[in-house]
Computed example of a mutant assay.
Amino acid sequence: MIAFGTYDAARHPRVAVLIAGLRAHGIKVTELNRPLGFSTAERVRLLQQPWRLPVLVLRLLRCWAGLVGDSVRQRRAEGRPGAVLVGYLGHFDVVLARLLYPRSVVVLDHLVFAGDTATDRGAAGLRVRLLTGLDRLAVACADLVVTDTEEHRQMLPVPDKGVVVLVGAPDAWRVPGSSSVATGEAPALSVVFFGLYTPLQGAPVIAEAVRDAVTAGAALRVTMVGAGQELPRAREILAGTPGVTWHDWVEPDLLPGLVADHQVCLGIFSDTPKGLRVVPNKVYQGLAAGCVVVTSDTPPQRRAVGENVELVPAADSRALADALVTLCEPAELAAARVRAARGRDRIRPQVVAEPLVAALHRRGAL
């Protein structure tokens, strides 16, 4: 099997989880990967601002030239692969994969719908229609489409082409936290949020909840990581609130350790259409890092991890504040940690990849 594309597993670990899960099932996976070098936010910005597209096209063509050469060498050494997995954000790469491997089962990891993501970030009109057309082209080029939730599978033009595979978390996130966190001796409840501050994440809801919890007397040590369109609003809400530390960026290899040094990891809290359809990476990563995870009570999150996380109503800052105040109680925190620990093995790569392995077997691709 080939893992193919311009993906960046360090920035976007979803494809790394799939590859590790496939290998854990005894499947040989050869990676043909030429990372494009753009973050998710940069790719979306390029697609929303057409005058920037030449930058994307030139870099994409350079990566594709390398992939074509890699493909020729791989075919000579190993023959035609039974299946080709196109990594996350592979809307363009899947077209090349279809051309290079017309007789293989092409699998598209369609974690993000371009049109849906652009809408969530405020785009409208022609740009959204063009991006929705790109989604349809990408899906049409694939034989099997991997989505992260049933809600996303139902968005496919042909849902039967889809298979739901939870995002999970790489084993690199299973790191021990600090001794004070592990023993519950921290003087304040340590809380971390990391993300791109997009509308679906609900950063203003988080900020209001932290402010109100501290006002109510909760002792919190809060770390906010990332940058994006709702960061200014979150900073405005939390201005003057003690115990809050801001980081615009943390290197991907350092992020698991930073998260593991906190007792609570925050998920997403908006009630936008996209926010109600996803289970974000940070929910799985927070669980893997040994944190108690607090996130919004939505159907996909309840199905995926509902027994192992603390759920609060979407877009309800008061409920989130109450949850943080409750977790300041040692007994409540200890019980939540037990629930979280029970879910860690369910999000390992080998486990989350099982539906994909079964689907590939059904198609005779292995």
Rank of each mutant, 00 (worst) to 15 (best):
L126Y: 11
T6D: 10
A227M: 04
R302S: 04
K28F: 03
A142P: 10
P187D: 07
H91N: 06
V294T: 08
G90Y: 14
T223A: 09
P204M: 03
D271K: 01
Q154L: 09
V294M: 08
T30N: 10
H91V: 04
A77Q: 13
G275L: 12
R121V: 09
A188E: 12
R129D: 11
F38Y: 14
V145H: 04
F92Y: 15
P313T: 12
W173R: 05
D109P: 15
L231C: 00
T132I: 02
L46I: 10
A288E: 01
R75V: 13
I2G: 06
A321T: 01
V244L: 10
A124P: 00
A41M: 14
W64E: 15
V164I: 11
D70L: 11
P81H: 03
A239T: 14
S178I: 04
Y88A: 03
A207F: 02
D120S: 12
V29S: 05
D135V: 01
A169L: 00
V167E: 00
V107L: 08
C328M: 06
E332R: 15
V293D: 05
L53V: 01
L108S: 09
A207D: 02
L111D: 15
I237F: 11
R11F: 15
A142K: 14
A20H: 05
L111C: 12
V165N: 02
V44P: 13
L67G: 06
S104P: 01
A16C: 00
M224E: 07
A359N: 02
D253S: 00
L32E: 15
L258G: 14
L156Q: 10
G168R: 12
E230D: 10
L36E: 15
V357N: 07
G290M: 00
V259W: 03
A203W: 11
A140K: 11
V139Q: 13
H247I: 04
A218G: 00
G162I: 14
E251M: 06
V57A: 09
A41G: 02
G133K: 04
L130K: 13
I206G: 12
L255D: 13
E42Y: 12
T198P: 10
A213L: 01
D297K: 12
G66M: 04
R45F: 09
L85Q: 09
R302H: 00
V259F: 02
V325T: 10
W173Y: 11
V214P: 11
A9W: 12
G87T: 05
D135L: 08
V309T: 02
R348M: 09
R344H: 03
V292R: 03
V68S: 02
D93P: 03
L276R: 15
T295K: 02
R362M: 06
A358C: 00
V57Y: 09
G115W: 08
A182K: 02
I27Y: 08
V158N: 13
V292N: 06
